[in-house]
């Protein structure tokens, strides 16, 4: 039923039946793909529909809770209007944008520096650093969140966006594997010849390696940029529950629907928030997907 995409020049003998069976299998493939597409888009569509749902009950109150039908009985942008006028969402959005803009620059610099050093420069502590990096990576990240909070506090930084940028970027040095895998492919001979021409290591890095590394730079930057939009764990602890005007979108939206005594009549508002967050992130991601795929493939396969 399933075939490879690899062409094999010499065709098998049974021409007719082979062609027929290939058509059947193609139809089946399309069918499967369509079914899978529906399954994969279903929750996304539902969120979008929920965000556009504007239904009132007989007392004239907006029904914001989850309902069991799919197609809203009334469409409108009321949830979006509410989101931007009655909640702190615009602030959250700007906060996140600010944090992720700084984070992606810092993180990318750190990640690429470490990856380049680990891949191309030889020095005595290199092996040690690699081992330690691996061991550190195995501890559950949020185990030390409380300690991080108090370290930031000792630095007088808690409950600021700067602290969040610092925390998101500081760990970037440990996430160098994918980029290192990429640098490993750049032939050493290229670097050697530059060195013979009298180039210093920093010149080689800036003028030879980096220009060759556009895909991995974009991959690293993309992930670093998107991270703050998705994280609701670190940001929650570091920014503090009470500083609502400092929250990022993920934390803000999380608190909208979570909490002991939360008003549960806000699901549609939450859905609207999700749509506003998802549109730029997904667009960015999809437009950069070529680089993302390159990074994923490089990272997973290169041993």
């Amino acid at each position: 039923m399933i075939n490879t995409n690899v062409s094999i020049a010499k065709k098998p003998k049974k021409f007719k039946s082979a062609k027929a069976s290939r058509n059947i299998s193609l139809v089946l493939s399309y069918l499967t793909l369509v079914v899978l597409t529906i399954i994969w888009l279903y929750p996304i569509l539902w969120i979008i529909l929920s965000s556009l749902r504007v239904e009132y009950n007989n007392a004239g109150d907006l029904i914001g809770i989850v309902v069991s039908h799919y197609i809203p009985k009334g469409f409108g942008f009321d949830n979006f209007v509410n989101l931007f006028t009655n909640t702190l969402f615009p602030r959250w959005f700007l906060n996140t944008l600010l944090v992720s803009s700084v984070t992606f620059v810092l993180s990318t610099l750190l990640t690429l520096s470490v990856a380049y050093v680990m891949s191309k420069l030889k020095f005595s502590a290199r092996k040690k650093f690699l081992n330690i990096a691996i061991i550190l990576g195995l501890f559950p990240g949020f185990m030390s969140m409380i300690a991080i909070y108090y370290i930031l506090k000792a630095l007088q930084l808690t409950q600021t966006l700067f602290a969040l940028m610092l925390v998101y970027s500081a760990g970037a040095g440990l996430g160098f594997y994918v980029a290192k895998g990429f640098f490993d492919i750049i032939p050493n001979s290229l670097l050697e010849s530059a060195r013979l021409d009298g180039a210093t290591n920093s010149q080689i890095f800036a003028k030879i390696v980096l220009p060759l590394s556009k895909p991995i730079i974009i991959y690293t930057a993309l992930l670093a940029f998107i991270g703050p939009w998705m994280d609701f764990i670190f940001a929650r602890v570091i920014l503090g529950e009470t500083n609502r005007e400092l929250h990022t979108v993920a934390v803000g939206l999380y608190y909208m629907v979570y909490g002991e005594r939360v008003d549960s009549n806000v699901f549609t508002l939450f859905a609207a928030g999700c749509v506003v967050v998802a549109i730029p992130i997904v667009t960015l991601f999809l437009s950069m997907q070529r680089y993302y795929i390159e990074g994923v493939t490089a990272g997973a396969v290169k041993g």
Partner: peptide, 17 residues
């Protein structure tokens, strides 16, 4: 429920609450 359930209860039942 308590007072903090009022808004959601009102949205759920409207005039029937």
């Amino acid at each position: 429920g308590g007072a903090w359930h009022f808004s959601a209860a009102k949205a759920a039942l409207g005039d029937d609450l």
